[in-house]
Design a binder for these strands. Structure first.
Lengths: 211, 211, 211, 211
DNA sequence: GATGAATGAGGATTCATTCAT
DNA sequence: CATGAATGAATCCTCATTCAT
């Protein structure tokens, strides 16, 4: 991916890290500059203003999480679902486990934090709302597709795919928020369990094997 | 309730409204003063600083939502569950319906926003985290109790009550966040549906009647 | 004049001095603070922003120059005209002469500078234009009234009063600008001469006596 | 004129346009670059700094207005005076009339604005003052010469030429400033009338015919 | 109990300018 | 010749907070 270089990209990732570190409410241009290791005025060469930069940061999430799934080759819907769950929860639990691809995974963790952070802004800022909505729709679609294929191939029980996808996404999101926001360390694991139980009951599928 | 008066209470509710209106990131002492209709320096007589005031704001939520449930008289677990769901979603949909107790309900809506707003701060501020966790535990306990009673009285199927309560709370929270943060108006309704479906499948109970 | 006290007035006069000292283009909030001898953030308690303050500064000129003329008692039109000319040029030549009322006159000098300074802003800023126009109309009216009375009392020849007043004002203004802006020290005196010559030719009046 | 080409000249004219558009107080190197359509750092190849460029801008005015008058062939003093008046006021009223030489005249209008703009700087900056003074002297001389010739040839009444020229220039300048700065559209026309009346009374000449 | 005056630190952003290419 | 990267100082303004009254 050749877009992963150049000053603009460096600024964007610095913003992501600063956002994860300080939170939206305490994020200042100066801190982004510190994270970048350069003058904070530099970023005005590449972005209109703070929000422009932060907004552009959300695109990274789409690129990293959603678009990474490629649909060229036919794949196992069960495996897809299990992968999706792992993709979501691995970065969250990486702090403790931390095995391979250090930088890579760490960056994903950070992105998840960014998502949680900017999501709160969607309440009052139209631009954030639009982008977040778009992102969530992408994600729900991803799940919906997997469910549909699984149903077609008779691997899953016949459930309303969109509704079920949204239910699953609700659990994902709650896991994310709980993990990042609240004093319950077992939260991620609990959410994963909720998802497995849901898959078992509603889809009659055991995803545990794919872990 | 005699704690619902006096300057301190007026400041607290002004803070709640200001928080709902501007969001944590854009909340300033000055704006709270404006919402209060008095000098912003007044609040330093009653609170140590901004965070002290904001933190105390979270207590209002506990008082309004959780404590309102009284357990003196034995009640129908089904009805309890249905009430809980309504209590949570009514304020969110009140903008359209708006029937009775104007001020009262409006204040609840606002409280829900405040919760969503401060919740994001829990990530980085110990004090917020503690208080939010406490609040969420209260709420999950509430649900857990209802479930336990329902199971004892053979009204619900035998499920792990704590886990199920947490699953339900996850849906609650997701509904809340989605409704306040994202461009999907049908979100609250969808979450309500998810909860009913969950009750049906897991508890073998139809809560729709109690609406 | 009891409005000549209080913090607001102190800020306004500090702005006037800073404006005279540095010019509009080089005037910063910081410099106003320095001139005031207090924190520059203080002025935001009294004015919306920099322009609000600067605009309010123009009112001082109206108060000092135009309103000082009182029309209660009947007066000699010739003397009025001579006074007007003196009022305008004295502050300009005070740097050299400087006799009485030190502070008073000095403040007038400064006000004249302010006028010249902000006048340039009228080109691009509606608000400045409105206020400057208003001020100039006031001044031209003042002259027009004197001329009318002089004509009625057969002291002046019968000339179109408004047009003549505007011609005189043009000379005033040019004198002011030349004196403040250009390297010709005799400018003010020259303009005064122009005015006397104009009065002689057009009004058939010798104002020199009244000096 | 071969100096009307090359990058240096393009930069200078861009500065002139930017100055007319934004005013000295709001003029930035960046905006000059935008007006130029090239990188703003380019101008550091041709000028020492911002002031150097702006100062050099004043030379354009001399070139355009004063030097355009050629004295090789003997000419009618009346016509000269009428031409001078037209040269000054045509660019100002061009917005409405706009007939020939579009670009040419437009550029003159802009130059007049620039003059008014930089003139204000003369108050505090020696370098501006020197250049402006020089320019004004040039202009007054121009008028003085015409008057002298007119007197010698018995076309004008015998008046002190220098003083009269300065009086006329005062009116010119006032017309310019009033037109550009204040809300009186009839200002230019009024000043023209003042000049005609002055010519009539003092020089016993009717310039109206030459229009 | 309540206010308005006052402040210093920090907010985002723009500035003129330099430099390597 | 021309540019884009980069920067530190300066811009206006808002912030939370203190204090005398």
């Amino acid at each position: 991916m050749n877009h992963r270089e150049g000053t603009e990209w460096r600024i964007r990732t610095a913003a992501v890290r600063a956002l994860a570190k300080h939170g939206y409410a305490n994020l200042s241009i100066k801190r982004i500059g510190e994270e970048l290791g350069q003058s904070s005025s530099l970023l005005y060469h590449y972005f209109d203003d703070k929000d422009d930069l932060l907004l552009s940061t959300l695109d990274l999430i789409g690129e990293e999480f959603v678009e990474q799934q490629d649909h060229d080759e036919p794949s196992d819907p069960k495996a897809d679902l299990a992968d999706l769950i792992d993709a979501f929860f691995d970065p969250l639990s990486v702090a403790e486990n931390s095995s391979t691809n250090e930088g890579e995974i760490e960056f994903k963790v950070v992105l998840v934090h960014v998502y949680a952070e900017l999501w709160a802004q969607a309440t009052r800022d139209e631009r954030y709302r639009t982008k977040i909505t778009e992102l969530e729709n992408q994600f729900v679609d991803e799940i919906t597709q997997s469910l549909k294929r699984g149903i077609e191939e008779n691997q899953f029980r016949e459930v309303p795919p969109k509704k079920t996808a949204e239910h699953m996404f609700a659990l994902f999101l709650h896991g994310l928020h709980t993990k990042t926001a609240v004093d319950r360390d077992e939260a991620a694991e609990m959410t994963r369990t909720s998802l497995y139980r849901l898959a078992e009951r509603e889809l009659s599928v055991d995803l545990r094997n794919f872990r």
